[in-house]
Design a protein around this nucleic acid. Structure first.
Length: 869
RNA sequence: GGGAGCAUAGCUCAGUUGGUUAGAGCGCUUGCUUUACACGCAAGAGGUCACAGGUUCGAGUCCUGUUGUUCCCACCA
């Protein structure tokens, strides 16, 4: 690097790709299985292959990478395996859409060809995703990259399925499920979003079969009357209890059904009479089970009514509803209609209304899986950070129902079950089944369904380790240490990994679950395609660089809380990065031969002050890093670098350098130490700057430790005093309206004559002073006095000063001082305080009072005055 | 209906186990081409910590209640 070539401002776009290649080509992130270091394993949430990465991913990968890089520098062997998720339903829908544009359907091209089309999609878009993960700077081991549908993951999936089937934890059953007529598949409970919508509650006449009276039934779904199998009332309802076991006639349809009593019925809702349609309502299904009622399925899988619905067959449920209501009205069977707010289930993927219907599906029995999964969190083996998310997890796990794991789509893990055409027996096996285990018939075919995409994601932490093969590696790296994810997939993924892992491996999948929030737009709205307010992280990266993006996402972040992203914020981050760049540039152009080196014997008090600060900060941020308090850690480093290192230390050093290489080297050493602690957050620019001064790579260097040798209390205090003098002078200059470019003279009366004399060059330069007269008599004219603990600074009044304004300010200062003096005096007179408060607090108050009183008396007499001695 | 979060400067947010004068970034005001950086430097204004009680020598922080707001869960047809 030629120093003369260092540009005035840092250009991220020309640097970042080269740096990542440098890391990757040198295998810095490669997991060394035979390493003696402590292994630290992070489970990387594999992104979908359907879209591009969004801001949520950027946050997620940033946080993971901060931990990975920090732990690596702390001496751990990092195992962080990247990969992508086949995201069954989303990908299938996208590929179907592509085919549709080409004018073909998936059934036309057939299973094999369709799977090839999907694989082609994966190769194209999956690679785009992995490129973007690299762009974000993720320091994962690409040689271990995985895909949830690759051979190894498929093996784990089949193993899981077969084992649980044999244990009867996976079963096939005809039950009511959430059906999406648009996606044409069943979906699980958590893939249904309930959205509040305005519906029409209609009151219908159900005549008794043996007389002319009727019961009034209120329903929002009149089109399902063809599936009615009973009318239910609460057995405790005085109005209706005598009708139980009588018969009514379903309007329009005309079939006769019984009146039953069931506690579920709410007397106060509608008329207190409920029509029971077990095939198309979850609650009704349960009532049906309790009363041994049959199920009449009246809705086709495409969302239309079937042949059981007479004239209405073929109509969609919403059209049929209108038609049924019209007909009921015209035949005088409808009493009234009223608008109500209710929750309607929508498919979380396509937003289409979910039709509950009865269908044969594969289910995972949850009851026994949930218990140990609950225990692992309860007894602290797995901890959520922040802790409150464990409550959300437990509540869900406590109320969990069986998981419908089969999907009527092709792209995904095909269910390893073979049906016999002959005897209908199902043979489940790891390998292709060629004959029926029951009747030996060779007439067997594989189940057409595939598995829910989360079924394979649930095994991700151990399937990527090669489980059930490569058992030794598995044992060395498992349970993993950490998973970081957004709160929106606790149920989808985190919970399922926990019970799957415990069931299958006997071990928890990870020790810690760090939960972060959503990235919202500048107004706090969720970023979404429909709003068009999404910000593409890749656009931001090309404009500002990924370091700036990472810094913005993590600055001021509180785990578990949502965060807002705005262009204003990222400008601040870019400015900070540019500041680092320029500090380095300054050192490099000061002397080409500069190296990060420290000679303890040659340290100035300023070096010692800075080392003291650095050491303290390192100690603090290490605590923050261990507790995943990234926002707090970066804030401290930011302030250390900008407020201490740049604003004071470099400014002092400028005066000390005088081309002294040893001094420069010390400064460079400290800069490099700061680069180390910054590196996990902003890896690219720090690596680049590091290369100006070092031959090795920053990313594999050691994290600085708290160094007790750098405990320079007294020297630090001296520097603090110098700073206090400079600050005081600057403040007074401003109050006197003296511009910075005008030099002034000052008089100081102090007991620290030696210190101030020795360091007067710094004071003169940084406060722009001509002459400093220490403990000298002033000659004539008005002066402005500033009182410090150890010195009184007197400045002859300047031409531009508005004395009235100044007096007002000083008066206010005196008042505030007086207030505090009174308050602290009172406090010290309080016996309870003296007795109960810790002594250091009491001492502190005493000291403050002392110094306040001194200042007060100085200011009271001398604030604007004729000089005195 | 159940549960959780949030409420602190004009805006966005920090504030670790209660302890000096409640912080940062942005914005605003004033001054500055001070030989790294105007993506900069120096100084400044701006807060009843939502409200009401309580515990404590001491509360932004702990407890109770109220209000506002966001989110999650739940089968009220």
């Amino acid at each position: 690097m030629q120093n003369s070539m260092i540009e005035k401002s840092y250009d991220a776009s020309s640097t970042e790709q080269k740096i990542y290649d440098f890391w990757e080509n040198n295998n810095f992130f490669k997991f060394n299985e035979s390493s003696k270091k402590k292994i630290y394993t992070i489970v990387l949430p594999p992104p979908n292959i359907t879209g591009a990465l969004h801001m949520g991913h950027a946050l997620n990968f940033t946080l993971q990478d901060i931990v990975a890089r920090y732990k690596r520098m702390m001496g751990c062997e990092i195992l962080w395996i990247p990969g992508t998720d086949h995201s069954a339903l989303s990908t299938e829908a996208k590929v179907v859409e592509v085919l549709r544009k080409r004018g073909v359907s998936k059934t036309e091209i057939g299973y094999e060809k369709f799977m090839q089309e999907c694989l082609a999609w994966k190769n194209k878009y999956g690679n785009k995703i992995t490129e973007q993960i690299r762009k974000l700077g993720a320091s994962c081991d690409w040689s271990l990259e995985r895909f949830t549908l690759d051979e190894g993951c498929s093996k784990a999936v089949n193993e899981f399925f077969v084992r649980l089937y044999n244990k009867k934890l996976i079963y096939r059953g005809k039950r009511i499920v959430n059906w999406c007529p648009n996606c044409n598949t069943s979906v699980s409970d958590i893939e249904v979003d309930f959205k509040e919508s305005e519906s029409e509650l209609v009151y219908l006449k159900y005549f008794f079969s043996d007389n002319n009276n009727f019961l009034t039934v209120a329903t929002t779904r009149p089109e399902t009357i063809f599936g009615d199998v009973a009318v239910a009332v609460n057995p405790g309802d005085e109005r209706y209890k005598n009708f139980i076991n009588k018969e009514v006639v379903v309007p329009i349809s005309g079939h006769k059904i019984k009146i039953i009593g069931d506690e579920y019925v709410d007397k106060s809702f509608g008329t207190g009479v409920l029509k029971v349609t077990p095939a198309h309502d979850f609650a009704d299904f349960e009532i049906g089970q309790r009363h041994d009622l049959k199920n009449i399925n009246i809705i086709n899988k495409n969302g239309t009514l079937n042949e059981k619905c007479g004239n209405y067959s073929g109509l969609t449920t919403s059209k049929a509803r209108k038609a049924v209501i019209d007909d009921l009205e015209s035949s005088n069977l409808l009493i009234k209609k009223e608008k109500i707010e209710n929750n309607v289930g929508k498919c979380s993927r396509c937003n289409c209304t979910i039709e509950p219907l009865i269908s044969t599906q594969w289910f995972l029995k949850m009851e026994n899986l949930a218990k140990p999964a609950l225990r692992a969190v309860k007894n602290g083996k797995i901890s959520f950070i922040p802790e409150r998310f464990s409550k959300i997890y437990m509540h869900w796990m406590n109320n969990i129902k069986d998981w419908c794991i089969s999907r009527q789509i092709w792209w995904g893990h095909r269910i390893p079950a073979w049906h016999c055409e002959n005897c209908n027996y199902i043979t489940v096996g790891l390998n292709k089944v060629n004959f029926c285990k029951n009747c030996n018939s060779k007439n067997v075919f594989q189940d057409n369904d595939s598995l829910d995409t989360w079924f394979s994601s649930a095994l991700w932490p151990f399937s990527v380790l090669g489980w059930p093969e490569f058992y030794e590696k598995f044992l060395r790296c498992y349970p993993t240490d950490l998973v970081i994810t957004g709160y929106d997939i606790i149920f989808f993924w985190i919970a399922r990994m926990i019970f799957s892992s415990i069931e299958l491996t006997g071990k928890i999948p990870f020790k810690k679950v760090v939960i972060h929030g959503l990235v919202r737009d500048a107004q706090g709205r969720k970023m979404s395609k429909s709003l068009g307010n999404g910000i593409d992280p890749i656009d931001i990266i090309s404009k500002y660089g990924v370091d700036a993006l990472r810094l913005t996402l993590v600055m001021g972040l509180t785990l578990g809380n949502d965060t807002r992203f705005s262009e204003k914020k990222i400008e601040g981050s870019r400015n900070f990065i540019n500041k680092i760049w320029n500090a380095a540039r300054f050192l490099k152009i000061s002397n080409e031969n500069i190296t990060p080196k420290i000679e303890l014997k040659n340290l100035s008090i300023y070096d010692k002050w800075m080392l003291n600060k650095l050491s303290d900060t390192i100690q603090e941020i290490q605590k923050n890093m261990e507790k995943f308090e990234f926002g707090m850690a970066i804030q401290k480093i930011y302030s250390l670098f900008w407020d201490d290192f740049c604003d004071w230390y470099i400014e002092f050093s400028k005066i000390n350098f005088k081309n002294n290489l040893s001094n420069l080297n010390t400064c460079c050493y400290i800069l490099c130490e700061i680069l180390k602690i910054l590196h996990p957050f902003i890896p690219f620019v720090t690596e680049k700057i590091w290369s100006f001064f070092n031959n090795n790579a920053l990313t594999v260097s050691n994290y600085p430790e708290f160094n007790s040798n750098f405990n320079y209390e007294q020297d630090s205090k001296d520097v603090e005093n110098i700073i206090a003098i400079i600050r005081a002078i600057r403040i007074k200059r401003n109050e006197m309206n003296t511009p910075h470019n005008k030099k002034i003279n000052i008089f100081i009366s102090t007991k620290f004559e030696d210190l101030i004399t020795k360091n007067s060059d710094k004071i003169k330069k940084l406060a722009n002073i001509n002459n400093i007269y220490i403990n000298k008599k002033l000659d004539g004219g008005k002066i402005l006095t500033c009182a410090l603990d150890f010195a009184n600074i007197m400045i002859p009044l300047q031409d531009l000063t508005n004395q009235d304004e100044l007096n007002l300010k000083l008066k206010k200062e005196l008042e505030e001082l007086k207030k505090r003096i009174d308050k602290n005096k009172k406090l010290l007179q309080n016996k309870n305080f003296i007795e109960k408060a810790p002594t250091d607090i009491v001492e502190n108050i005493k000291n403050i009072l002392d110094s306040d009183e001194k200042k007060y008396s100085v200011l009271l007499n001398k604030f604007i005055s004729q000089p005195q001695d």
